[in-house]
Design a protein around this nucleic acid. Sequence first.
RNA 1: UGGGGUAUCGCCAAACGGUAAGGCACUGGACUCUGACUCCAGCAUCUCAAGGUUCGAAUCCUUGUACCCCAGCCA
Length: 567
Amino acid sequence: MENKENFEEKVNEAEEKETVSKNFIEMIIDKDLEEGKIKSIVTRFPPEPNGYLHIGHAKSILLNYGLTKKYGGKFNLRFDDTNPTKEKTEFVDSIIEDVKWIGGDFEDRLFFASDYFDQMYEAAVKLIKKGKAFVCDLTADEIREYRGTLTEPGKNSPYRDRSIEENLQLFEDMKAGKFADGSRVLRAKIDMASPNINMRDPVIYRVAKVPHHNTGDKWCIYPMYDFAHPIEDAIEGITHSICTLEFEDHRPLYDWVVRELEYEIPPKQIEFAKMYLTNVITGKRYIKKLVEEGIVDGWDDPRLVSISALRRRGYTPESIQMFMELCGVSKSQSSVDYAMLEYCIREDLKLKRPRIMAVLDPIKLVITNYPEGQIEHLEALNNQENEAMGVRQVPFGRELYIEREDFMIEPPKKYFRLFPGNEVRLMNAYFVTCTGYKTDEDGNVTEVQCTYDPETKSGSGFNARKVKGTIHWVAAQTTVKAEVRLYENIVDESKGVYNEDGSLNLNPNSITVLKECYIEPSIAGAKAPDSFQFLRQGFFCLDSKDSTPEKPVFNRIVSLKSSYKPE
RNA sequence: UGGGGUAUCGCCAAACGGUAAGGCACUGGACUCUGACUCCAGCAUCUCAAGGUUCGAAUCCUUGUACCCCAGCCA
């Protein structure tokens, strides 16, 4: 009796543990919903169009979008384009493409902060009228001096006590273009002695006679992030404005703006820790340099982790979504092992992609007892773990190519592949026994000779004897020639990311280009972004930039795991 | 030496006062027409440290320590 109860208790406990725990943001949302503060959630991804999106942005997109999927809310894409000196339409287009590709479905809710400039201007006027903002004539340097330091309070601007009327007039003049860039700014009137530097009368509007990618020359004054962002959020009815940790100090200012502007449903800023990945380069300065020096092939070089690079490398949106799910969300700064990303792409692709044979470093194998000129078509499963993917015919003949590393003249212990006298299985074909080999004058193996046993044909059910090794191959006559690019991490953290002089300690083997690879003919007709498992080697995709039907180029997305250790 | 954060396995990360989930990585073993996959087993007597409160502390209190962010008219 007692035992039975214990057992049931344990079962219940186990069931409880099945429920996935919520992250801290979901707890906040649950609470807000429960308390009736909001009826449903609205989130947003607010990039500034000043560059390409990378894996860190992917986390933000998927976090914000994922929350609205979970809670049945709405997700907006909003360009935070309040500084025309840094922004370009080119980036708007690439960001939209990347957000869609990664799976952030904003439906028809594509917005621009710049579309709210009128409302922001009105908001600024409202602050002035409340005596909560003033026009300041101090220069940028003077403002910095007046601001004080981390440990010393600042002091009030001499212009802080201008009358509301004068401020109103001056601000209107700023808008009318009567003042040069940098000559005057609008500042919030808060507290120059605040221990939080962001609260020391922050600048909220500046003059910049620069055309804007969206509003053209309509404006010559532009709002600052700290002022604009809460307004953008409020206008769109954002309930949870999720950003990264470095904005924690800005939250009091965010809340101040929301309060002074008296929004009915105040948006709430929540900060989470950025995603960092091991063994990758994300710094713009470094990437720019790598591009300029020709070390990488642009911002979408497959060794980089911009979204376009990941896409070109063969990562799928699903794999990246799985990755973000696995990583979780928290407030502790962390760096996720790149191996976790690799796990996700293998996991996503393993049942979805055909598994075919490709020889990357070919060496000829001649089956001396196989009829010359004969070509036989052998049936092969496209994916032995997913039979729905069907079968294909693979041509087999007397002359094949096998992987150079699958043959050794003098094998070490536990080497299961081909060596003189040893029998292995040619995958999808026959058992072959090595009978000899040829070398050139330097002793390099140029050809391996075997005999085959017709009884051992794949699928025949032959089981009179077994072999330890199975190797892949392609028939020499029908092969498709391709270039294959093998990638490794661009830096190795265990060896140090930086040299003593501050330059990057690059992995010299981050790319290996193999020009003469042979692939089974079923590959013909494939085009980017198609991807495949090359049996025993890894997952590969056609390169979207360089591959052509005449000269296919493959990128290695990720290798297969291997417990084989040579020696 | 101001303010704001964060510290739980090699790496992520749960646990919300009831006796340290899970994933990745790694290590064994089984299976195998991929040295893959899958399966099975192992992997924190302990939560930055030291005190304290409590029947009971990763969770509360005290005092420290380490790391991250902030002094743009950038976002």
